[in-house]
Design a binder for these strands. Structure first.
Lengths: 220, 220
DNA sequence: TCAAAAGTGTTCTACCTACACCCATGT
DNA sequence: ACATGGGTGTAGGTAGAACACTTTTGA
């Protein structure tokens, strides 16, 4: 980094983009928001929303702008975390050598329904369409990271409505992990970590005993 | 990413650099290799070795080149892993807006001694000098990551000589974790994961019972 | 024979897993 | 009264933590 300004500018610089993989749970499935490309390269294939980093833009801001502009999603309602920076494949983008900083995000299905600018098409991560660039690898990588972190972090709440039942929360974990969980063990574990607030309200729905509603305690 | 070439080039692009934090164990301490800056900004302060990413250079290659050129270290002898990409602080580098992809690496102290081009100064991560840019934060972040991953990964072997005793290995873990470990539990755990090869040789040294030498099984 | 580090097993605890029945509701 | 999902406790197994003594060597 000890360079004069001359040195900094004397060589050709790669481009830097941010790509975002936005997850939600829809139809009992873990889904990712993708955009159909209308232009080459990879015209007709699906891609993660992305955007080149502007000179005065923080990189997380670039990610949020990509969601807004490419996906029509209100970027403030999205939990985002940096995933990895992909810069190995020099052929990744055929127009220009591009380094891609990838973020992954979570949004609850409710929030999507209410945002009518939403331009994403949602695909189950188990049934992805043909993808542009190396986006298939990126999605696989993100799903793995999501699974590793789901117990260490409370981000699964980003997928929930404001009020939810324990069974609904368990379903989200099961969808992320792609595995069945034991009801009693799940409740024990999730209540132990003390991030749930019992709203002392019941959800009356269906022909069965009503379920308690919870929200999660916001960190201060 | 769906942009015409015009769009790609019409805005000013940030620079992309790779910074590397190289760790070793010296004098019973976890140390990082730093370089004293001779030029502004931050002249006289210490910095991680770094380098701007060239157009035709894979980013891990940029990291290795930085070690070679800035530190005089043979880059093939170094374990490297991507840590995080820092791009929040627009004032990070005062000359140009720079995004920094940070790698961390490990090298055994032996290897450093034999490389006489070595230009690093080594500092205990607990007694760092005044650092340039936001490199203090980066080092703290890397140390935390190292601690989290030391049991999940076998990278601690990068810090060892070719042949080593269990006590020497334990010392390395203790230095990384900054904590004392129980000898019996450590041996049980490390032998259980089955990555050590008993060389059936003894290290005769000092006035005490000789220690068995091990190497680690290279993954194929 | 002494000092110094190597080497070795068992007990206790905490956490995770597996598992089955009663409860409250609407029809 | 029955079908449906909500709600609850316990026993067994496993992995990690704590802990002390004997062995081998060179001086």
């Amino acid at each position: 980094m000890a360079k004069t300004e001359d040195e900094i500018f004397k060589f050709k610089r790669p481009g830097v983009a941010v790509d975002v993989i936005l997850f939600t749970i829809k139809d009992g499935d873990l889904q990712a928001g993708l955009i159909k490309r209308e232009e080459p390269p990879y015209s007709g294939k699906y891609a993660l929303p992305g955007r080149f980093v502007r000179y005065e833009e923080q990189i997380e801001e670039t990610a949020r702008q990509a969601l807004k502009i490419k996906g029509g999603i209100d970027p403030h309602s999205v939990f985002l975390e940096q995933l990895y920076t992909f810069g190995q494949n020099l052929e990744r983008d055929t127009r220009i050598r591009t380094i891609s900083i990838v973020y992954y995000g979570l949004i609850s299905a409710n929030q999507i329904y209410f945002q009518k600018g939403n331009k994403f098409q949602w695909f189950s991560v188990y049934k992805l369409p043909q993808l542009a660039f190396d986006h298939k690898n990126i999605i696989d990588y993100a799903v793995n990271r999501l699974r590793k972190k789901v117990w260490e972090s409370d981000f699964a709440f980003q997928l929930m409505a404001e009020e939810f039942t324990l069974t609904e929360l368990q379903k989200s974990y099961e969808v992320i992990l792609n595995d069945k969980l034991d009801k009693r063990n799940f409740r024990k574990k999730i209540l132990e970590i003390n991030i749930l607030k019992d709203l002392h309200k019941k959800k009356m729905e269906g022909v069965h005993r009503p379920a308690s509603l919870y929200s999660f305690k916001k960190a201060k």
